[in-house]
């Protein structure tokens, strides 16, 4: 099922970094961001056409600000698109995204090296 869903994504998104078999990732978080978008698409939150348009906007904006345009930053734009799109769809506000980002930062800070990092309620600062 993953294969078919991924194949649809790769054919709908011509710029997706890939080898002759399918998508490739430079770092683990890129695969995670890819998986999240794939899941949301499978749920019907957006079509790949819609996604491609949002991503193209994001890339255009980044390039106007000096992005290298060599493919190495593709998933940075992917992640920014994901954040904006879920906010635009009313799924998660940008404020909540920041709150959770800060909470994870706090969780990492208090976690001794070598232990798994887990999010706890006290990681959320009162806003």
């Amino acid at each position: 099922m993953t294969d078919a869903a991924a194949a649809r994504a790769t054919s709908a998104l011509p710029d997706l970094p890939r080898d002759d078999v399918g998508p490739v990732f430079r770092e683990p978080w890129e695969a995670q961001a890819f998986a999240i978008a794939l899941s949301l698409h499978e749920r019907g939150l957006f079509t790949w056409t819609e996604w491609a348009a949002a991503l193209a906007d994001e890339i255009k904006r980044a390039q106007a600000c000096g992005d290298p345009d060599d493919g190495t930053t593709y998933y940075r734009h992917w992640l920014a698109t994901l954040e904006k799109l879920v906010a635009a769809k009313g799924v998660v506000t940008l404020e909540d995204q920041h709150r959770y980002r800060d909470a994870w930062d706090h969780a990492a800070d208090r976690t001794p090296h070598g232990s798994p990092i887990e999010l706890r309620p006290e990681d959320f600062r009162p806003s």
């Binding site: 978080w29 995670q32 961001a33 999240i36 899941s39 949301l40 749920r43 939150l45 940075r76 992640l79 994901l82 954040e83 879920v86 799924v91 998660v92 909540d96 995204q97 920041h98 959770y100 980002r101 909470a103 994870w104 930062d105 990492a108 800070d109 208090r110 976690t111 001794p112 090296h113 232990s115 990092i117 999010l119």
Partner: peptide
């Protein structure tokens, strides 16, 4: 030396994954 660290992008990805999971989207 003493604590864990996540990069800015890792933090953002984790944040999204956590909220979307809590809301039942992923």
């Amino acid at each position: 030396h003493d604590h864990s660290e996540l990069s800015e992008t890792e933090l953002r990805v984790r944040a999204l994954e956590t909220i979307l999971t809590e809301k039942g989207y992923v």
